[in-house]
Write a protein that binds this DNA or RNA. Structure first.
Lengths: 196, 196
DNA sequence: GGATCCATGTAACGGGTTACATGATTCG
DNA sequence: CGAATCATGTAACCCGTTACATGGATCC
């Protein structure tokens, strides 16, 4: 938890207005899940779910979980294990739920740029070697094409009978990923032709 | 310049292999331009050109320029002014040119996720208020729609006769921005219907 | 019997953001 | 005559990344 929130004695939800994106994301995941989870397992969940939108480093994950507990937004439970390393399970608290709800309801004021290293490189293309750029453009396209097929595979993953309400939102974001990936692939192909 | 590059006595280009994205971007801009430029003006250039791909804070810009000079990748020239504050003009050096060329030619190994605060929020949509989400989705769509029209206006900006070789690359990246923005707007509209 | 899985950390480092500051000048 | 422009900076803060570490258990 950032130091600047320490002096906020009351109004925890308002203090929560100062969480990092990473903190909100992890807190949101805890709220998304139905059972307490270890940091280790949470990582895997991230990879399978929001990974394509956003991803924390391993170290960050553990650090954030502890911060959330310190802020009262999550609770922890230590579990002893005999044949495996001991672990700590984290769950969201009512305060935590209020915090994400407040975050979700709050309007964001700025729209971030679509950051991409490769596209930035392409912008400077005239200063470099054309063949190298083409090579990287191909890699760029292939990376998005791979993503695309991963997303599309997920699309039909869960059978309709087992769907939960939150799946609707998962699918919306999935569709976002699909549409944007598709746009990227098509653009890359068109640009490749232009470079040839 | 990061401290870790200090001990590299020779092979400046290789030391340059350790620059930040921000540093490469600014160096690339210096290489892109034909004349020395002040930090102040460079900011405006950023806003008008690569701004939608990537953008540094004001403070960063000035700091990076000084770092680039310290590394020998850029040169500076102090200009006294009578009716305006004095300024410093920066230009890329031959070493700097070699550095971006090396960067441009180098393959990137990782593909970053398509980070978006709002989409992350939508992923957690089930935990929040539906109306608030719809409101933000509209804002999201409108922001991209605005971008879209800005890009499209740029597309036909420069008359064909005055075009320079680097414009081809500018247009490629511009088209990327257009296609992705279009995809975002269409997705947002479809999702809005779904939420209604 | 070497690799991979489980499960979690520490330490160091640095880049980037936010807030604040300055002071003359030109525009409306 | 107040606001915006020009032009650059300092200070503080901290989030996030990278590298490194541990040690038993299971898999092939």
């Amino acid at each position: 938890m950032p130091a600047r929130t320490i002096d906020r004695t009351s109004a925890v939800v308002e203090a929560a207005a100062r969480l990092t994106l990473t903190e909100y994301a992890i807190l949101g995941l805890l709220g998304h899940l139905t059972e307490p989870i270890s940091g280790y397992d949470l990582r895997k969940v991230v990879e399978r779910s929001v990974g394509y939108i956003w991803q924390p480093s391993k170290t960050q994950l553990y650090a954030v979980l502890r911060r959330l507990v310190a802020a009262g937004l999550a609770s922890e439970e230590h579990v002893r294990q005999t044949h495996r390393p001991d672990k700590t399970l984290y769950a969201i608290t009512p305060t935590g739920r209020a915090a994400i709800r407040a975050w979700l309801d709050r309007d964001e004021d700025e729209s971030e740029p679509d950051r991409s290293i490769f596209v930035l490189k392409l912008f400077f293309g005239a200063q470099g070697d054309r063949a190298a750029l083409v090579r990287q453009l191909v890699a760029f396209r292939d990376a998005y094409a791979r993503r695309l097929s991963v997303y599309e595979a997920k699309w039909d993953a869960r059978p309709e009978a087992e769907r939960r309400p939150s799946d609707d939102f998962t699918r919306m974001t999935l569709r976002y990923g699909i549409e944007r990936a598709r746009a990227a692939v098509e653009w890359a192909n068109a640009t490749l032709e232009e470079l040839a």
